[in-house]
Design a protein around this nucleic acid. Structure first.
Lengths: 254, 254
DNA sequence: AACGCCTGTTGCACAGAGTGCAACGGGCCT
DNA sequence: AGGCCCGTTGCACTCTGTGCAACAGGCGTT
């Protein structure tokens, strides 16, 4: 709604793709170089972009700091973390915590598998909404009209033959998830990786976050993973209890 | 340099402190509500802020995604990561990688100690510049005038009795670090935690990043930690070799 | 139940702020 | 040395952002 700010903010995703010089930024914004310069300078002053030694612009340090602060101030993350750690100790697999926001689902916490994994932390990265178990748990809780609206708006990339193919299949699955109170992703995102997820609920009963356990086929089969379901659900319920204030917890910081 | 953008960006750190409603934002910016509204709407469209169910504004999902992308595209992080993991396997302690930017130092990668630690990943968080070993390594490489300028501009918070007390002590220390090619922090930030750090250099010989190993007193004494110095330095040199292109490495993505 | 308050939202007129242009300057390659 | 390319600056024009005032809706109060 504000043209100047709109243009300035459009620079950020552009720079996320990689460093760019003034001319490139101006071209891609469709503005004059001098305009781009002024916008970049403002971003620079705020530390959101950084000018590296070859004069090109990059995303800057403050961006990381802001993201970090925002993430740390999510109280649900703080409450859930110890539970995630405990679950990881019990089952040994990778544990994720995710929330839903603006038609995107993103991981806000993660405890890595004990088994060696090459994957670097993807906390903060958007999740494949149409297939991930956590995404199904989160979207299944939306009221029916919204659920439909979201489902129709989405793309359904065929990551694997088992990926959700289209909106109606997705809606069917969400209905099932809503009914049973948990979700699974059996090789729908990566052929050899399975996940099971369960909802964390707030005081109002609505789903506030989703928790999942993921493991590759080579470590445990899908059937074995599903035997962990009761443990996953009870952990999610424990988090729900604290988060909704039913279980008293002492907290250090506000 | 651009007032509108400047105001819009000032909202971000404000929201990092916690959710706020329209009136609060307008007040703290010193602008009319309608102005604040338009700025927030623009930020909202770009996903940098999010409007939660109680109508208050928070920092949004896209911020995390941007930070993540930017971090992952730092090629030095990519090159260094396997080395950090190896070093962690060899010594068992927490390993950090940090860079210097805009008078701040921030961690861009971390491999956690094998010993149980409650600390959540602080990747992206600014480092205590006056005491951290990585900060000393990074700042020691600056040309003398800049080093002085930075040192004078800084605050010197007395985290512990061993914290660097003032600018001239800091400059002396930087000179020593520059000479010896490594740095230590012995309880200068937290009473019981020690670190040793070594520089990673680019093709031009300048320090591009710093790597450190940290461990609490209860696990190893400062003297024992210092015996790891040769290992830390050789790891840093190995990273320097790859980063500066002296050691050939095959890379998957551009 | 009706009132009044508080917060978010809209339309509008004014002018201040952002824009593109053209000219300058410095570094690098030819 | 010459020419080219990129970043930078000052300026006049006008478009865009601004504050105001009035509206709307939710909530607590009397």
């Amino acid at each position: 709604m504000s043209q100047t700010v709109d243009r300035a903010l459009s620079i950020l995703p552009l720079l996320a793709e990689g460093p760019a010089d003034l001319g490139q930024v101006a071209d891609r914004l469709g503005v004059h170089k001098s305009t781009a310069l002024r916008l970049l300078r403002t971003l620079l002053e705020h530390g959101l972009v950084y000018r590296q030694s070859d004069q090109r612009y990059r995303l800057g340090a403050r961006l990381f700091a802001l993201a970090q602060e925002a993430m740390e101030s999510l109280d649900i993350r703080e409450i859930a973390h110890p539970h995630l750690v405990r679950l990881n100790q019990q089952c040994g697999h990778t544990v994720h915590l995710a929330v839903h926001e603006e038609d995107e689902v993103l991981y806000i916490d993660k405890v890595d598998s004990r088994y060696p994994v090459r994957m670097y932390s993807r906390i903060g990265r958007p999740v494949a909404v149409t297939v991930a178990a956590v995404a199904k748990v989160l979207l299944a809780d939306l009221p029916e009209p919204e659920r439909r609206a979201v489902a129709e708006k989405l793309d359904y990339p065929p990551y694997t033959p088992r990926s959700t193919p289209h909106a109606s299949a997705f809606l069917d699955e969400l209905a099932a998830v809503r009914e049973q109170g948990w979700a699974a992703d059996l090789g729908g995102h990566e052929e050899s990786v399975n996940c099971v997820a369960a909802p964390v609920r707030g005081a109002d009963g609505r789903v506030a976050a989703a928790m999942s356990v993921s493991a590759p086929n080579v470590v445990v089969t899908a059937e074995e993973l599903l035997t962990l379901l009761p443990l996953v659900r009870s952990t999610a319920n424990a988090i729900s209890g604290e988060y909704s204030g039913r279980t008293p917890v002492e907290k250090a910081t506000a």
